[in-house]
Amino acid sequence: MMNFLFKRVLVLGCLLISIFGFSQDLKLDQYRWTTINTSGEVTGRHENAFVEYKGQLYLLGGRGINPVNVFDPETNSWTTKSKSPMEIHHFQAVVYGDAIFLVGAMTGKYPKETPLENIWMYYPETNRWVKGPEIPADRRRGGAGAVVYNDKIYLVGGIDYGHTSGTNNYFDSYDLKTGEWNVLTKSPHIRDHFPAIVVDNKLYCVGGRNTSVHYPDNFGAFFNATIPYVDVYDFAKNEWRTLENELPVPTAAGSLVQADNKLIYIGGEGRQAQAYNQAQCLDLATGEWLQLAPLNTGRHGTGAVIYKGNVFIAAGSPVKGGGALTSIEVFAPAAEGH
C-alpha cells in the first residue's frame, strides 16, 4: 500500500500507475502508512506525475520548471536528473516502451494555464526530453486522465482553459504505433483533476471536479464541485456505464492504484482547507467501498505507485491549492514497516 506478477497500467493525473500484483489473501485493513526517511535531494512540487520505470520511481513535472527526481525503493534514496524543457503540470504520465509519455498537460500560471500543443516524452535511460506529435487543436486540454491499453494512449476528461472554463467529458485515443488520433464516445460525466486506470479490460475514472464552476463573488467555488461518480469504459463492449456506489469522500486530484481486484483512491482536495488523507478502497467484485488507514500527511496533485506489493506516494500539496511536499510515504503491512 505475495506474489509479484508484473503489470503496467497508468496512472494520474494527475497521474501513471505501475503495478506489481498483490496476493489473493490481501488484507488491506492490516496496512499502514509510514513516512520514509530518505537520502539525496528532492524538489517539492504538486500537480506532478509519479511513475515506476524498471524498478525506479520517477517524479516529473509539477508547477514551476523542475528536475526529474528518481527514488530508489531499495535504498530509499533520491537522485536528480534533467529539468523539464518548460513548466509542465496537471497531467497523468504513462509508460510505453522505453519512454514516459506526458499528454493532457498544461503549462503557465494560475488561473489561465494553457494546454500543451504537443505530446512530450522523457527517456529515463538517456535522461532526455523529446517533443512529440502535435495534439489536434480541438482536443488539447489539461487535468485529464490518461492510460495505456493495447498500444494506445487513451485520454479522458480534462479542462480546456486552465482553471477558468472548459471542463469536459472528451474521450480520445492516440495510436502509439501509427500516430493516429481518434475521437471516441464521450464519458457519462465531465471531470478534470482526476486519475484513470485500466483493470481487466475496463477503464475507471475516479474522483475529480468541475473546475468550470465559478460565481461572481467566489471564483474558487470549483473546489466544492467534486465528482462522486465512478465511470467505467468497457473496451470489449465499447460502452460506458456508471457504478451504482459513489466515491464516499469525493475529492479532486487524488491518486489511484490497483490492488488485485480492488482500487485504492488516495488523498485529494475539496471543501476543507487541508488536503485529504483518506485512502478509499473500492472492491470491484462487490462494488462496495471501505476506508483504509489514512495517510500521515494529506496530499493532492501527485501520483501513486505500487512496487513489490507496497504503495508509494510522494510530493503533492498538503493544503487546498498550492503547496510543495518533499516527503514520501509507503503503505505496507503494519508488521513489515519500511
Results as ranks from 00 to 15, higher is better:
residue 321 G to H: 09
residue 212 S to A: 07
residue 204 Y to N: 00
residue 4 F to K: 10
residue 45 R to K: 13
residue 75 T to I: 03
residue 312 F to R: 05
residue 190 I to S: 09
residue 160 D to C: 04
residue 146 A to E: 11
residue 276 Y to W: 07
residue 200 D to E: 10
residue 117 E to S: 12
residue 95 V to K: 12
residue 244 E to K: 12
residue 97 G to C: 06
residue 294 P to F: 04
residue 302 T to K: 03
residue 327 S to L: 10
residue 151 D to Y: 01
residue 243 L to W: 01
residue 47 E to T: 00
residue 260 D to Y: 00
residue 109 K to T: 12
residue 28 L to K: 06
residue 68 V to C: 05
residue 63 R to L: 08
residue 150 N to V: 01
residue 6 F to A: 13
residue 202 K to W: 10
residue 138 D to L: 08
residue 252 A to D: 08
residue 30 Q to V: 14
residue 88 I to R: 02
residue 47 E to Y: 05
residue 269 E to N: 08
residue 236 A to N: 15
residue 299 R to V: 05
residue 183 V to R: 15
residue 305 V to R: 09
residue 334 A to Q: 12
residue 118 N to F: 13
residue 43 T to E: 15
residue 105 A to W: 08
residue 31 Y to W: 10
residue 169 N to A: 15
residue 176 L to F: 04
residue 165 S to M: 09
residue 44 G to D: 08
residue 163 H to V: 01
residue 225 A to N: 11
residue 204 Y to P: 01
residue 225 A to H: 06
residue 289 W to P: 02
residue 275 A to Q: 05
residue 268 G to E: 02
residue 45 R to M: 07
residue 43 T to M: 14
residue 229 Y to M: 01
residue 56 Q to D: 10
residue 162 G to V: 02
residue 243 L to E: 05
residue 193 H to N: 10
residue 162 G to A: 03
residue 213 V to D: 13
residue 221 A to S: 08
residue 306 I to E: 07
residue 45 R to V: 04
residue 117 E to C: 01
residue 64 G to D: 08
residue 195 P to D: 15
residue 77 S to W: 06
residue 53 Y to H: 10
residue 55 G to H: 00
residue 291 Q to G: 01
residue 14 C to A: 14
residue 125 E to M: 11
residue 287 G to L: 04
residue 181 W to T: 05
residue 29 D to R: 05
residue 313 I to Y: 12
residue 327 S to K: 02
residue 285 A to R: 06
residue 214 H to K: 13
residue 43 T to L: 14
residue 122 Y to N: 08
residue 231 D to Y: 07
residue 50 F to Q: 03
residue 172 D to V: 11
residue 209 R to A: 08
residue 116 L to F: 09
residue 141 R to M: 10
residue 282 L to Q: 04
residue 211 T to C: 10
residue 202 K to R: 14
residue 73 P to E: 08
residue 311 V to G: 08
residue 16 L to S: 11
residue 181 W to S: 05
residue 173 S to W: 06
residue 13 G to T: 09
residue 239 E to M: 09
residue 329 E to G: 02
residue 256 L to S: 14
residue 297 T to S: 06
residue 102 L to W: 01
residue 14 C to P: 00
residue 131 K to Q: 15
residue 63 R to Q: 06
residue 204 Y to E: 03
residue 191 R to F: 07
residue 108 G to T: 11
residue 284 L to A: 03
residue 158 G to V: 00
residue 150 N to Y: 06
residue 141 R to Y: 00
residue 132 G to A: 12
residue 204 Y to W: 05
residue 319 V to D: 13
residue 139 R to P: 00
residue 124 P to Y: 12
residue 272 Q to Y: 09
residue 80 T to E: 15
residue 239 E to Y: 06
residue 217 D to H: 01
residue 210 N to C: 07
residue 215 Y to L: 14
residue 135 I to D: 07
residue 152 K to C: 13
residue 58 Y to W: 05
residue 75 T to V: 04
residue 268 G to H: 03
residue 66 N to T: 09
residue 272 Q to A: 08
residue 252 A to H: 13
residue 127 N to Q: 15
residue 174 Y to I: 12
